[in-house]
Design a protein around this nucleic acid. Structure first.
Lengths: 267, 267
DNA sequence: TAGTGGTCTAGACCACCTG
DNA sequence: AGGTGGTCTAGACCACTAC
């Protein structure tokens, strides 16, 4: 019986999701509206696992946009790991197992599944920075940095311990603001705009302080994220050192395999 | 003195990297050749930290390619976390601290820094799959799967324990082949082409078997990667369950911050 | 052979930032 | 005002896959 289902899925015909026609007056890019529509169609079951999407040219005609716009939209969904494309074949919806959650945003998965997020600020002060932090931020050792330490909760249960360091001082970052808004949102409000970040993900045993805050045994494994964010001037504007309880937090990272056409880089 | 250096860096003029003119006859896309040239210029110091790149239009004229091609090339480097772009401002090289390594590919960092990688195959056989693996691969429990267990070394020191499961059978995957080539390269040779993958990264304590293989204490923290790869039909074709010694292996994941223009998705 | 996605062009208008 | 990146168009040719 289940074998039959597999065959039936494999022979799903071409499907054209009922994408709402894009709104050209607003500030939202066409490709983004189309990508959102495709994701909605997948999440809502209109595009079931294994379905063959209509061709790019067909979608262009139907929506009245250029092919590049459609391609950018589809590319966005491919990068999220929901679609698969192959030249000469077409575009299909990935067949996720039953247990998989379809779409998890990288850092906001606390809000998902109705888990109520909250934040407790443990520390918020200017201090001279140590050598490690100075090197990461491109400062001299001992320069003044803003140091923030928070604990993140979901439904009252501790998820992670977050340390953040900002060079100099940033207005508008107060204890109360940090307990309702995200750090990046506050930084943006203060005119400090993060554009790209370099991140390292690893693991280690918890320190005794962390074990107390996270309610785990000392030395129990934690997932670590080490991040440096940069502004438009290319300067490091934030350094994050976070650790998470691995039973309550993990990272989702979709991946595209490189094309094999470019084995050799042209002279 | 160092303050002076900072100012000098901030006032670096526009720089045009000496990109080799692209080769249009080969199979390598123009945008890929240009992106490689930019990365080479950054790694080689020709584009120092904080340098302002020439404008997209200037680069178009200089290289004789269209603007979209240049944009795609630059986008690629931005996605690797080496450049920062902002409308009305320009494109700059990120200022990495002295200790940072400039560029690390996600899974091949074993080769970097002259560390000699090797692989030992512990298991390679067909077996009926358990419920967990069946669910991930979209199979019925008990279906035959190819199970591969390997240990990865760098300079003779164990790095990680890798379990992989392939549905059915795949020709050409032998013990000898696995010790010299990567699994994905062998799969591709057998006509099984991975296109996208969903991955989960987490942490846990090592099992007793893992602790023996990795030469760590039992229960010591390991970094885990749980992956499912998909082919053009949208079918799961591989499931990986890996764990790594966190002192010898970590993941690098550059990140772009979302534009804030698209807060609301157009109706 | 017909259809697919992958690449590329030569324009255009816009929002944004700096002078 | 002039320059920057962000978006979009309407074409074109190519490589690949299936039939």
């Amino acid at each position: 019986m289940k074998g039959v289902i597999r065959v039936a899925e494999a022979e799903l015909g071409v499907l054209a999701p009922s994408l709402l026609l894009p709104n050209r007056s607003g500030p939202v890019p066409l490709w983004y509206q189309i990508a959102s529509g495709i994701i909605r169609a997948i999440d809502g079951g209109e595009l079931p696992a294994g379905a063959l999407l209509e061709s790019e040219r067909a979608m262009c005609d139907r929506l009245g946009v250029s092919r590049l716009t459609v391609r950018r939209a589809i590319q966005d969904v491919v990068d999220k790991g929901l679609l698969v494309r192959r030249r000469g074949v077409g575009t299909r919806v990935v067949r996720l197992g039953s247990g998989q959650h379809n779409l998890t945003s990288l850092f906001e998965e606390l809000q998902a599944a109705g888990r109520r997020p909250s934040t407790k600020v443990l520390e918020l002060r200017r201090e001279p920075c140590g050598g490690e932090v100075a090197e990461r931020l491109g400062l001299q050792e001992g320069s003044a940095v803003f140091h923030i330490q928070r604990v993140r909760f979901a439904d009252g249960a501790p998820i992670g311990v977050l340390h953040n360091y900002l060079p100099g001082s940033v207005r508008g970052i107060t204890l109360g603001a940090l307990e309702t808004d995200g750090l990046y949102s506050l930084m943006r409000s203060a005119g400090v705009v993060p554009l790209v970040a370099r991140q390292h993900v690893g693991a280690r045993g918890s320190t005794s302080r962390e074990s107390l805050l996270l309610a785990i045994e000392r030395g129990a494994p934690v997932l670590t994220v080490d991040r440096i964010a940069f502004n438009a001037a290319g300067e490091a504007i934030e350094h994050g050192l976070h650790c998470y309880r691995p039973d309550r937090y993990s990272l989702d990272l979709p991946m595209r395999f490189e094309d094999q056409t470019r084995g050799r880089i042209g002279a």
